[in-house]
């Protein structure tokens, strides 16, 4: 059985809209290009096979984020030894400043629950409400994770003598 050309168009559209974001989220969770690609690939396969029905594009986005995070956890559990990809190897832009890479590395080193909230909010631009829907958390829980994540990051930055603001 082959998928219809309409489905192909849909998946292309969805891929174009979300693949980069899902890859970034996956990379930040797994710190491996190879595993992040596997995670994103798996998410799109689930999207294709399950053909979930979404009430809105927000709902679709929340589903994709949630499935991606679960997929990353799954890969993290299954693969105890993973091939680490340094951040500067996956950033192709030559204009990137070293300071920025240093800060991102600190963010990516945060404990998982804080990192996810910080990345979705400050880097992907999602509102607290959107994050609470994607992570199935209360808004106050998301706020708490953001607060603790910031505090954790500040402490780590202070140790290194960096300033991220």
């Amino acid at each position: 059985m082959r998928v219809s050309s309409q489905q192909e168009t849909d998946i292309e559209k969805v891929y174009k809209m979300y693949a980069d974001m899902l890859f970034r989220i996956s990379y930040s969770a797994l710190l491996s290009k190879e595993d992040a690609e596997d995670a994103v690939h798996e998410v799109f396969m689930k999207y294709l096979n399950r053909k979930p029905h979404f009430k809105s594009s927000e709902h679709e986005k929340a589903w994709l984020i949630r499935v991606t995070l679960n997929q990353c956890k799954d890969i993290g559990r299954r693969k105890k030894i993973r091939k680490y990809t340094p951040l500067d190897e996956i950033i192709e832009s030559p204009k990137v400043k070293e300071d920025s890479i240093g800060i991102l590395e600190q963010v990516f080193a945060l404990p998982e629950k804080y990192k996810t909230a910080i990345i979705l909010h400050y880097f992907e631009g999602y509102s607290i409400e959107e994050i609470s829907s994607a992570l199935k958390l209360t808004k106050s829980a998301v706020k708490m994770r953001l607060l603790r994540g910031r505090e954790y990051l500040k402490k780590e930055m202070d140790k290194e003598g960096n300033d991220y603001v």
């Binding site: 059985m1 082959r2 998928v3 489905q7 192909e8 998946i11 292309e12 891929y15 693949a19 980069d20 899902l22 890859f23 970034r24 990379y27 290009k33 690609e37 994103v40 690939h41 799109f44 396969m45 294709l48 951040l87 996956i90 950033i91 192709e92 832009s93 990137v96 400043k97 300071d99 920025s100 890479i101 800060i103 991102l104 990345i119 400050y122 880097f123 910031r150 991220y164 603001v165």
Partner: peptide, 30 residues
Amino acid sequence: MFDKNTIKTYRSITASDSLKRRVLSQSTTE
């Protein structure tokens, strides 16, 4: 909270073309 450069650097992380080919090719070969 984070400066524009850091956010720009983060956003410059993108999925590779090979991943796109992998996903889209699988979508047609059930």
